[in-house]
């Protein structure tokens, strides 16, 4: 039924760190791969190698530029580039569920995951109309609505090694910008992360109460004590060639003719 549960036992969801995301789109590709080969209808492409390619994706990465206003401490603030992955936020008050005329859309009581029963979906598209986040896409080949399942076929899958029992996007992210866990449990790692870093909701004014949270990026031009945690490793290792390379360098310099890059 499309009535929302009054309470879910857990609130499984994602925490996305906008400070860490490097915009590599690896999560997009791994999501497309896993969800094409597993649960439900495959995520189809149309005209994939033609002039106007298009396809179904459950996760897309936008990039935004944020230009702070000048102030006395920062008269000429630098703009910041923020990479912004976006997928279903598994809202507590999910409008996509209640508008569904067939009962195909539902929110699970046990973990709060919002799913589509693809055998009941008529492809009317109204749930996509009601979603502010663009999380639902009507698959043009299957004619049914596709959305993030939070990899429901991975997270409880005992055929997978334990380390793989997280959503595909989380498992893949090379920057560690995506975290998975129970946001209904205040003692879970993800809840602590949200509390510590000031996790935020997208479009809170629409009253959807998203479960997924976004961690705001730090202003990277105002970090005084340390440019980067990797900075100590970035100093040049060998400025002067030594040993055999040093001898070769000197020997080659002595030969007649012009060497690019100058001489020692």
């Amino acid at each position: 039924m499309t009535q929302l549960p009054t309470h879910t036992d857990r609130k499984m969801g994602l925490v996305i760190d906008l400070d860490t995301c490097v915009g590599c789109h690896a999560c997009v590709i791994s999501c497309k791969g896993w969800n094409t080969e597993n649960y439900g209808a495959p995520l189809s492409d149309q005209n994939a190698y033609g002039s106007d390619p298009s396809g179904t994706f459950l996760n897309r990465v936008h990039s935004y530029e944020v230009q702070p206003s000048p102030c006395s401490s920062q008269p000429d603030p630098a703009a910041q580039l923020v990479h912004f992955p976006k997928s279903c936020l598994h809202c507590e008050d999910a409008p996509c569920v209640t508008v569904c005329p067939t009962g195909a859309s539902y929110k699970r009581v046990e973990d709060g995951i919002v799913l589509v029963n693809e055998d009941h979906c008529i492809g009317c598209g109204l749930c996509a109309w009601s979603c502010p986040y663009g999380a639902r896409e009507l698959d043009q080949a299957a004619g049914v609505m596709k959305k993030c399942t939070l990899c429901v076929d991975r997270i409880y899958n005992e055929n997978l090694p334990e380390v793989d029992r997280v959503p595909s996007c989380v498992r893949t992210c090379p920057a560690g910008a995506r975290h998975f866990g129970d946001l209904g449990d205040p003692d879970s790692d993800v809840s602590k992360l949200v509390a510590e870093r000031g996790g935020m909701d997208l479009m809170p004014e629409l009253g959807t109460k998203p479960v997924n949270k976004y961690l705001p990026p730090r202003p990277k031009d105002q970090i005084d004590d340390q440019i980067d945690v990797l900075a100590p490793l970035l100093t040049p290792v060998a400025e002067e060639p030594k040993g055999f390379l040093g001898w070769l360098d000197k020997a080659l310099d002595k030969l007649p003719g012009h060497s690019e890059g100058g001489s020692n």
Binding site: D52, G55, R60, Y64, E65, P68, L202, Y214, P219
Partner: peptide, 23 residues
Amino acid sequence: TATGLGDRGSVRAFEPPHTGSNY
């Protein structure tokens, strides 16, 4: 409000997620 970044400055869509169109 859509990006949650509005209180840090003016937000501009810099790059779309893909070059083509979508649903």
